[in-house]
Write a protein that binds this DNA or RNA. Structure first.
Lengths: 201, 201
DNA sequence: GTCTATATCAGGATAGAC
DNA sequence: GTCTATCCTGATATAGAC
């Protein structure tokens, strides 16, 4: 297999296993078994396990970029685009109930490990944050677009964590509905007063 | 040292380390160094590391119970009691920005480990959930008290995760304010229609 | 590029002295 | 009750054959 392809296959398997079992807990033997390669071979493609983590995060960034682009292309209104974001909770509900949010749980784990890649992982959140802020700005909320973006991102994270803890699909559906109602209720606020003070949530 | 006390000292140190470094990542050597005891001694008090985890969860349950009781005693209104819950985000903001929520991150980690104690850890959430539901019922929202409880619990989790990712204290303060406004806005809903349908959030 | 074999180390857990 | 010494396993990482 050409090096680039092998590298990609390893990264893909590591991505899934890091999500499902955690970064620290996943051994290179686990990844090796998954892709049918020997452990030793890994070090031809990556110098360290941390380097694989770096590749996984880069892969996720690319995937996120593609997803955001697809949402931009598919939905015509900012409201519908934010709806696409919210819908990932529906689409991925099974995995979320089993393993939580891939981004949130990775950030939490790297925070506890005090890992150098902690900031890189948080950068995945930033991608969503900035994209969401663009949508809220397009909705006419230029002044507090970033705060609204953080708010909806916050809710998606809360839903993911509780969904994993209680494995309650109805809860997810209920909160998704509430999130959509909330988004639809966002209209340009009058002058003066930030989001937090002018609107309950 | 009497056995009960040693056991307690070990559990206390493990509690903090499991929070700050994660359960899997924390070695018994780490805990031993923390309490100034030898690794070998641990096995006089606990048969396995998992048993220490069990003791930590039990300890957290007791601590949570004490905290809920204190909130019951200190605050006179259901609104103020829910306010006490929300305020833990303020009180613990430094640790939350560093390590996330102790309950949420433990549940997430145990989920990925497919650990037997996963349900026990989620039980910590249940304690808050049920206590919050009592408050919302007292506010006159008997019919959807549990859903409201889950909603505010969800928001606390979302805030914790993003606070850890971005280490943004202003974000926490803003969302706490929004949560309090939201709680204050909760009044008995008219007949028919569940929380999700009758109220945006 | 991929393999096998191995070095090295740290983890959980046990045995037995004190 | 606590210690030291040790076993065993599994982890990352390396060396070198093919």
């Amino acid at each position: 297999m050409p090096a680039a392809e092998t590298r990609s296959v390893i990264t893909e398997a590591a991505d899934r296993l890091f999500y499902e079992r955690g970064f620290e807990t996943t051994s290179l033997a686990d990844v090796a078994a998954e892709v049918g390669l020997s452990r030793g071979n890994f070090y031809y493609h990556f110098k360290t396990k941390d380097e694989i983590l770096g590749a996984v995060i880069a892969r996720r960034r690319a995937g996120t970029r593609d997803m955001l682009d697809a949402w931009d292309a598919a939905a015509s209104s900012p409201l519908a685009r934010v709806g696409s974001f919210i819908d990932i909770l529906t689409v991925n509900r099974s995995k979320i109930m089993a393993f939580g949010c891939p981004v949130g749980t990775l950030c939490d784990e790297l925070a506890k490990l005090d890992h150098a890649a902690r900031t890189d992982a948080a950068g995945l959140f930033t991608m969503f944050r900035e994209w969401l802020a663009v949508q809220f700005a397009a909705l006419g909320r230029e002044r507090d677009a970033d705060q609204l973006a953080l708010h909806i991102l916050m809710r998606s994270q809360g839903v993911a964590t509780l969904a994993a803890a209680f494995r309650d699909e109805a809860f997810i559906a209920r909160e998704i509905a509430a999130m959509k109602v909330w988004v639809a209720a966002q209209r340009p606020a009058g002058e003066g007063g930030s989001y937090a003070h002018s609107r309950p949530d």
